[in-house]
Design a protein around this nucleic acid. Sequence first.
DNA 1: TAGATTGTTAATCGATTAACAATC
DNA 2: TAGATTGTTAATCGATTAACAATC
Lengths: 212, 212
Amino acid sequence: MSHIKASLPVIRRLPRYYRYITELKNKGTQRVSSSQLANIMGSTPSQVRQDFNCFGGFGQQGVGYSVELLHSEIEKLLFPPEKLNAVLLGAGNLGVTIANFVLKESQGVNLVGMFDSDNAIIGNKLFGMEIKPMSSFVDFCQEEHVDILIVCTPKDAAEELACDVIKSDVKGIWNYSHFDFSVHDSSLIVENVHLRDNLMALSYRITHKDDE
Amino acid sequence: MSHIKASLPVIRRLPRYYRYITELKNKGTQRVSSSQLANIMGSTPSQVRQDFNCFGGFGQQGVGYSVELLHSEIEKLLFPPEKLNAVLLGAGNLGVTIANFVLKESQGVNLVGMFDSDNAIIGNKLFGMEIKPMSSFVDFCQEEHVDILIVCTPKDAAEELACDVIKSDVKGIWNYSHFDFSVHDSSLIVENVHLRDNLMALSYRITHKDDE
DNA sequence: TAGATTGTTAATCGATTAACAATC
DNA sequence: TAGATTGTTAATCGATTAACAATC
């Protein structure tokens, strides 16, 4: 029953726990031990227990964890009571794919707007929503209570947006651009998905596998 | 001149250094100090120096780092002498976007094949390449020397692929599926891009910002 | 009761930060 | 020479792992 604030590594593991426990639940498994979970996660029983104890400890000494309880508790942690509202900035190739992903595969997050600066596509309908001009997004955010900005613009556009972002009063950014919001404003909650950086890291690790 | 094997956090920072140093180079900046870089990176001068010393230390005491030299050294580290060959498994919405990304925005990696199990799209041409049946990818890998597998299939399909992957003798996986290759085969080099997990972590952090 | 397995405290490990001698 | 800034060693911090008492 400690309820220590969860550290970032713990938070990052939470969705993975959720995935595996959902699988167990669907298989009809009733109980699971920290060592079984460690096995599935590729970690250690200690870590599993430490992780869960950040949130209050869902287990029973001598018995293990109830899959059902674990599932519903982690669900409560991951899905807020009201869905978060998100807005897409940059409706290019990647942006549209991510928008589609949010609409179809994410529980917990609503896509409520799409913005672009290209006149050629402004006004087009996509997923039943009209692509609006980029310049109108700050006003939109004020009216519609937007929580998350999904940034899929080129770097320069993202950089220009930086001031507007602060004005817009959003709580977090899902950032696919090469502009690092977190470096410039540490109060923002940012998750970066830097595809290029990620592929480079993979390529480095492959190439230097046998170093020393 | 220590040349310690770079740890994963250091490797992950390398592409970011590269981005910032490329910018400095394009601006015509000649020299940069560890504290300036720390500022741009949102880290500390100590970390910058430690990081670079993993690769042999590119600086000059009392003077700083030459932007030109830093750029070319990091480039050498990140881009292998021969490009790596990659193959896409799963040419759905996300897969096609990623393929497009690799073709247009990644130096250092070649896309040499695309595979899917859906008969409706097998044989279609995309980016001048024919989508081939999934069943043929192991043979293809043997003939064409494939280094990287980009997995954009649903979880079940990825799970079925697991054995073939080992046979195929690839060196690394860029994984967008919900099947965790790294847990099941720790000898594989895997970079996971779990969009759903990532968005969930963002949503958790937003919702629990003010906890304790 | 004995065996199993948690919750929690303590020990270890690794990464980050600080300090300082070396040197341009 | 004095000032600046690195390379490198030492100190700190945080996360992971181990140990063990509590308890089902």
